[in-house]
């Protein structure tokens, strides 16, 4: 309410969350990506080596990234991913395509990661499954808000300054690097949730299953991770 930025830009329309006249009953058509996956899988089942190479090319990075976000070091992550690919080949017959290929691969990786942790007789389980939450408390520093003696307690004292053309700004190569660093700096469980939900695009149910989290817990971690990311970006953009 202060005179700080008396003129704020008009709030853009939020992404549509459509109230459709009739509910959509039929199954949604496959995306291009899903179709490609299905074709590759078919070819792979037929023993096509180039299909295998293509799948590896497509999913190796995300798998390594996931293993890292479970807390594995670089070398260990590579080993876990190797085991994951081999495990996927062995389990190919049993994959019924009820989930996406990516989700299925991630599930295999998780099992590999746990098996490894058990083999190494770790008493502390893989960190994504315990601890690494980061601190409690507000996701925006308390001093950003007005206090009891001010005109508007609990309203912004230093409000966020609007970002100019965020879409373009955040799509630059520099920004991507900054995003990766910021993600890597998150506490482990937040890192895992943000990676799976927002970077890899898995849905909430899939992530809850993979990370063995309740819905509520998953949301808290997602929120804290996202808030931290926003804050980091704010620091970079406002700098």
């Amino acid at each position: 309410m202060s005179a700080l930025a008396a003129e704020a830009p008009a709030w853009r329309y939020r992404a549509a969350c459509l109230e459709s006249p009739q509910p959509v009953e039929e199954k949604e058509p496959l995306t291009t990506h899903e179709r490609e996956d299905a074709e590759l899988l078919s070819a792979l089942r037929g023993g096509d080596e180039s299909a295998f190479t293509e799948l590896v090319r497509r999913y190796h990075g995300p798998l390594v990234h996931l293993a890292r976000s479970f807390g594995a070091g670089e070398a260990v992550a590579e080993e876990i991913v190797q085991e994951t690919w081999l495990g996927a080949l062995r389990g190919l017959d049993r994959f019924e395509q009820r989930s996406s290929l990516k989700t299925w691969l991630f599930g295999i990786l998780k099992n590999q990661a746990r098996a490894r942790a058990r083999r190494e007789r770790r008493t502390v389980p893989f960190s994504a499954f315990a601890g690494g939450e980061g601190s409690d408390g507000p996701t925006v520093a308390a001093e950003r808000f007005q206090g009891d003696g001010d005109n508007w307690p609990d309203h912004w004292a230093t409000p966020p300054r609007p970002w100019e053309d965020p879409h373009r700004r955040l799509a630059s190569l520099e920004a991507r690097e900054q995003l990766r660093s910021a993600i890597a700096a998150l506490p482990e469980r937040q890192r895992a949730v943000v990676t799976l939900r927002d970077v890899e695009g898995l849905d909430a149910a899939e992530v809850c299953e993979l990370l063995e989290l309740s819905e509520g817990n998953q949301r808290v971690l997602l929120h804290r991770g996202r808030a931290a990311m926003r804050s980091t970006l704010e620091g970079l953009i406002d700098a």
Binding site: W11, R12, R14, A15, V56, R57, H60, G61, P62, V64, H65, E78, V81, P160, P162, W163, P166, H167, L170, A171, A175, R176, L179, R180, I183, V194, D198, V199, E200, G201, R226, A227, M229, R230, L233, E234
Partner: peptide, 19 residues
């Protein structure tokens, strides 16, 4: 809006390294 922009930008951080 900033929160949403952050979320929208995150897929850009996907790792695509090959083995």
């Amino acid at each position: 809006e900033q929160f949403e922009a952050t979320v929208e930008a995150l897929p850009g951080a996907a790792e695509s390294e090959s083995p």
